[in-house]
Design a protein around this nucleic acid. Sequence first.
RNA 1: GUGGAUGUAGUUCAGUCGGUUAGAACGUCGGAUUGUGGUUCCGAAAGUCGUGGGUUCGAGCCCCAUCUUCCACCCCA
Length: 463
Amino acid sequence: MSSKPSIPKGTRDFSTDEMLKREYIFETIKQVFRLYGYQPIETPAMENLTTLLGKYGEEGDKLLFRILNSGDFLSSVNDEELIKREPGKLSSKICEKGLRYDLTVPFARYVVQHRDEIVFPFKRYQIQPVWRADRPQKGRYREFFQCDVDVIGSDSLLNEYELIKIVDDIFQRLKIETLIKINNRKVLSGIAEFIGEGERITDITVAIDKIDKIGIEAVNAELSCKGLTSEAISNLQPVLQLTGNNNTKLSKLEKLISKSETGLKGISELRTLFAYIENSSIICDVELDLTLARGLNYYTGAIIEVKSKDIGIGSICGGGRYDNLAGVFGMEGVSGVGISFGADRIYDVLNQLNLFNEVKVSSTEVLVVNFGEEETDYAFQILDILRTLEVSTELFPDSGKLKKQFSYADSKRIPYIIIAGEDEIENEMITIKIMSSGEQRKIKLKELKSFVKEEIKLAKTCG
RNA sequence: GUGGAUGUAGUUCAGUCGGUUAGAACGUCGGAUUGUGGUUCCGAAAGUCGUGGGUUCGAGCCCCAUCUUCCACCCCA
């Protein structure tokens, strides 16, 4: 009859258990964001396609979910166009909205649109789902949550430093060991100039980004496929094979690309940033990685990517500086820098490392047994006392068998059950059962308050 | 967009060479126990074998198509 219910490809339901864990991640991230002075905003799930298109490169445009216009969406399409079946042209006529692809572009739109209300530098965070029409696979979903922090309207490299500090802080709290990789788009441009292929910066960066995965030989092969001269490729080799610590790498590179003005600017930016980092309390490893490229083509300065040391799942956090993203919406000269935490991947990492064990799954603490109409009023009194004391409490809704009510408490891992039937009511008593030990105590209703303070609250703080 | 796997009860999976009425565990529900959970014992419900075609006397099993999910590439969080 009715087909089995299902959800679209690449989307997920979150169970009650999963939600508690997810909320723990979001809360931790949010707390740190606030601690550094960032404030929340939200933007709509859908944006006008004109806002979205062209910001993520050709690949990104393909991955946008487009929303079919309502009503007679074919009204502006003539038969000829229909017969030609050109999806690109057709979709621009029948769709004017799309689901957001990330939070950075909508943020840039927000800033430009509300420029008169915003005080700069503007520090905001935003935690919302985004959608990509990608093929789902491990750690990749079509609907997933990003947690973005950005500061816009300030060129200072202190912002870059602060974001790295935030990354460090959050992953310390979540107890994930991470490696932060840093590079600078200006340095990449410098390298491209140095080997005489300044125009092909995108091809070059995309290729060298893969060096970890496919090795240096394959990268060279790909570069020559893209049409780079063998001279350019051989010029590139010393750059790819730089070794040493962050500072020696920078010095060596500085000599190599000394003729490129942007390249030198990038190097000096990196020097400043690393100086901040070395003199600070940052704990996780921060590494200069000249092969880090990142696809989003709006980045212009620092680029940052964070990986888990223990779990290979792609990056769990990434971002960078974009000097002119607001420019495409008609507001020039406003520079921003931001990073995005991938909550879903962080979840997968915590799960695989079993780090959720330490998360207190807080749920109902006391279940009050339901005996029926006669006893309900008395139960109400108990509920009120407990809730006034901030103890989360529920009354079983049906007066069924006690066995059922007890197994309910057991499956929900409720630690205390209060039994108040005919006998107890007569003497203004209650019976409290401590599930973990099976111990059962009969006390006066008046004593409930002190029981909560002595037993429940204590168990909570010692946890 | 390219390539490879997959689909049987709510879940995880068996299912022989193509042969009668489709199997288990877990979970769910009921009972053993009408005021007591976890353990145990007994019992029950639950499946159009992803969908649509085809081959065959006969298909969960073979063939074709299609969809789903998963994995890799591309790209990315």
